[in-house]
Amino acid sequence: MAAGGYCKLPNGTVVVALNLPSPAGGGAGSVRVLVHAQNRARALTRLRNLGLRAVYLRGNAAGPTPDEVTAVLHHPDGLIWRTAPDGGPAGPELVTELWHPIRALLGRPAPQRT
């Protein structure tokens, strides 16, 4: 289970934001994951298909900020992450870390172009 939330965009799609424990484990903190999809169910399915099986969205307490929505909409995969700030989900702290593609978190190689 994860803290998070979502926002519905004017075109009907949604951006889901989740705070998840780091897959690195060992007290490595948590990560903030953003997913752009047609609806909440598809957003969670995208994460589950990547191996994050126990991902659920309960409530809407920690929805994406406008800056996070912009970041995920401008990424070609529509699925990005960065280390979550210590103050909670996208708190008022200045976050200087850039967003990363999800394959960088899961340790998957980039697709080969031919």
Rank of each mutant, 00 (worst) to 15 (best):
P85C: 06
G107S: 09
L18P: 11
V31E: 09
D77Y: 10
P64F: 08
A84H: 00
A61Y: 07
T13G: 01
P10S: 12
V33A: 01
T70F: 09
L94M: 06
V33I: 13
L79R: 00
E93D: 13
L73R: 12
L98R: 14
A61C: 10
N19H: 12
G78W: 03
G12T: 13
V55G: 07
C7G: 08
G88T: 01
H36I: 00
V35I: 12
P10V: 12
E93V: 08
P21M: 05
A110E: 14
P64N: 10
V95K: 00
I80R: 05
P64S: 08
D67I: 02
V16W: 01
D86E: 12
Y6K: 12
R58I: 13
P85M: 02
P23A: 08
R58L: 14
P92T: 10
Q38A: 13
A71N: 05
P64R: 04
P85A: 02
T65N: 05
W99L: 06
P85H: 02
T45W: 04
Y6W: 15
P76Q: 11
T70C: 08
P64Y: 05
W81G: 06
G25I: 10
Q38L: 10
T13E: 13
G63C: 07
R113G: 10
Y56A: 11
H74L: 09
G29D: 09
L50S: 14
P21A: 11
L98F: 04
R82E: 00
S30W: 04
V16M: 00
P89T: 02
P10Q: 09
V14M: 07
G107C: 06
P111D: 00
C7Y: 02
V33K: 02
P76R: 14
V33D: 02
N49H: 14
L18N: 09
N11D: 15
A90D: 15
L20V: 08
P85F: 03
V55Y: 04
P101G: 09
A41Y: 05
R48P: 05
A24S: 14
L44H: 11
Q112K: 14
G91M: 03
P64T: 05
A3L: 15
N39Y: 02
H75D: 15
R42A: 15
W81L: 06
L105T: 03
P21Q: 09
N11T: 08
A41N: 09
D86P: 07
A28S: 14
N49K: 15
T114H: 11
T45G: 07
G107Y: 04
N19T: 12
P109D: 08
P92C: 05
P66S: 11
G26R: 07
R108N: 15
V95C: 03
R53S: 15
R108P: 03
E97K: 07
L94P: 04
G63T: 06
L18T: 10
V15P: 06
R48H: 13
P109R: 13
V31N: 05
K8Q: 14
Q112T: 15
L44Y: 09
R82N: 02
T13H: 11
M1D: 12
T83K: 02
P111G: 00
A43T: 03
N39M: 01
S22C: 13
V55I: 14
P76Y: 10
R58M: 10
P92L: 05
E93C: 06
T65C: 10
